[in-house]
Lab assay of single mutants.
Amino acid sequence: MTEYKLVVVGAGGVGKSALTIQLIQNHFVDEYDPTIEDSYRKQVVIDGETCLLDILDTAGQEEYSAMRDQYMRTGEGFLCVFAINNTKSFEDIHHYREQIKRVKDSEDVPMVLVGNKCDLPSRTVDTKQAQDLARSYGIPFIETSAKTRQGVDDAFYTLVREIRKHKEKMSKDGKKKKKKSKTKCVIM
């Protein structure tokens, strides 16, 4: 069974824990209790493949930012979460993405942009803004509501699919490099 290491990042209060708990335990946590770091595991079937999701729910508070490099190193894919009623959390996505790329030393890291709290009427981040940002990053965008469960499975499952595509691409690139290195030079 394939294991996928997913990391949920975003500013404090955007609903990272609520999304994760909704996926794992099928219930909505409405009281806000700032996370330092929590880890969850769940076995699911995605596109006919049974897999184990190892999900790291991270601290959004700035005082825990020193811990970010460590979990970013171990993560295979990242859910970059903002709240649709919090423009600052949307603007912060850029910083999370840049930090992930720096730590992973790669421009090509599996990510999904997630606009959470889409059940709320007080939207300050337009869907088109988020779609445009995701398009500019070359990553999928999904709106979710941890409260109603809308888009929750889709967000995590899409990230797994992005990781699969990335692994497939990397193995193809690896095979191309191996083929090239088999060419021999004969000096007579």
Rank of each mutant, 00 (worst) to 15 (best):
E63M: 05
E63W: 02
Y64S: 00
Y64W: 07
S65I: 08
A66D: 06
M67W: 01
M67A: 01
M67R: 01
M67C: 03
R68V: 01
R68A: 08
D69A: 04
D69W: 03
D69P: 05
Q70I: 02
Q70K: 06
Q70P: 04
Q70F: 03
Q70G: 07
Y71K: 00
Y71G: 02
Y71C: 03
Y71L: 01
M72I: 06
M72G: 03
M72S: 04
M72K: 01
R73Y: 08
R73C: 08
G75T: 05
G75N: 07
G75E: 04
E76I: 14
E76N: 06
G77W: 01
F78P: 00
F78S: 01
C80H: 05
C80T: 04
V81H: 05
V81L: 12
V81G: 04
F82A: 15
F82M: 13
A83T: 09
A83V: 03
A83D: 15
I84W: 14
I84Y: 15
I84T: 15
I84A: 15
N86S: 12
N86R: 05
N86L: 02
T87E: 15
S89A: 13
D92E: 15
I93R: 02
H95F: 05
H95D: 12
Y96A: 05
Y96G: 02
Y96K: 03
R97K: 10
R97T: 14
E98D: 08
E98A: 05
Q99L: 12
K101V: 07
R102F: 07
R102K: 13
R102S: 09
K104W: 14
K104E: 04
K104A: 11
D105E: 12
D105P: 07
D105H: 09
D105N: 14
S106V: 11
S106T: 14
S106C: 14
S106I: 11
E107I: 11
D108A: 08
D108F: 09
V109Y: 06
P110N: 04
P110K: 03
M111K: 03
M111F: 11
M111W: 04
V112D: 00
V112S: 01
V112W: 02
V112A: 03
L113T: 04
V114L: 11
V114N: 01
G115R: 05
G115C: 13
G115F: 11
N116I: 12
K117C: 14
K117S: 14
C118W: 09
C118A: 12
C118S: 11
C118Y: 10
C118V: 10
C118M: 11
C118G: 11
D119I: 03
D119V: 04
D119T: 07
D119S: 06
D119L: 05
D119N: 09
L120W: 11
L120C: 12
L120E: 14
P121R: 09
P121A: 12
P121T: 14
P121V: 10
P121E: 13
S122P: 10
S122D: 14
S122T: 11
R123D: 15
R123V: 13
T124Y: 11
T124W: 09
T124N: 13
T124P: 13
V125N: 12
D126N: 10
D126F: 08
